[in-house]
Write a protein that binds this DNA or RNA. Structure first.
Lengths: 112, 112
DNA sequence: GAACTGTGTCACCCGTGACTGACACAACCG
DNA sequence: CGGTTGTGTCAGTCACGGGTGACACAGTTC
């Protein structure tokens, strides 16, 4: 005879996948060692490309590529300083970083 | 005449790249649409593989692969329930998720 | 026992993305 | 002006990882 199926939880096939584009985009940026290290180093203030390249042990054009990705995402800003216009200094956009963190909280934090 | 070089910031080539293995590992897991969606869906309680597969529009073996990655990272747990031993139910490990979020905070939050 | 459903494992294919090399541009110096 | 340094761009190459297909295993039903 069949078991009491009433206590077997029904399979829910109508689950809706939530919108996770933004957090995935943030995580994709952080999923690279060089980009995450750049963001970590910039926490102590602006640095130029050559400094970051030396710290990472990477070529400057490669670092420049990663900085472009971070810049397009708004996480960092580039500027030439008056005292040293030859080098380009990058600094974090703390507001954007906080917003990015919020996206990840939306996935990793318990339901509110 | 030469500019006053004393105001030109010296290039710091002695920067030390911080340890970012853990946050990169977390971000790598979240950098995939299916894995992030799984974590988001599991916020409302345990679900079996077939439910997750239906919600994602993916095949169950593919979802099982992603769940294995999440399981190895400790973010989810698998269990067979007494009322339905045929299916495997997955649930979030909230403590591990919180710990994972802390790793990302260490990169995205401003310096303390 | 056989048949079936749900899940897990693994080799394979293939697209995405990181690193490279060559080159171009910007800003300084002689 | 030409030379040098710092940075950016882009096509090419290659490794990594996600999806698939085939199969094995667990648990249930007949």
């Amino acid at each position: 005879m069949p078991a009491d199926t009433s206590i077997i939880p029904e399979v829910r096939l109508n689950l809706v996948a939530p919108d996770i584009e933004a957090p995935v985009a943030v995580a994709t940026l952080l999923a690279d060692r060089n980009r995450t290290t750049i963001l970590a180093i910039l926490r102590d203030g602006p640095h130029c490309v050559c400094e970051l390249a030396a710290a990472l042990g990477e070529r400057s054009n490669n670092v420049s590529n990663h900085l472009a990705r971070l810049r397009e995402a708004g996480l960092v800003r580039a500027s030439r300083m008056a005292a040293d216009t030859r080098r380009v200094y990058y600094e974090r956009d703390e507001a954007a970083c906080t917003a990015a963190l919020s996206q990840l909280k939306g996935v990793l934090e318990p339901i509110r």
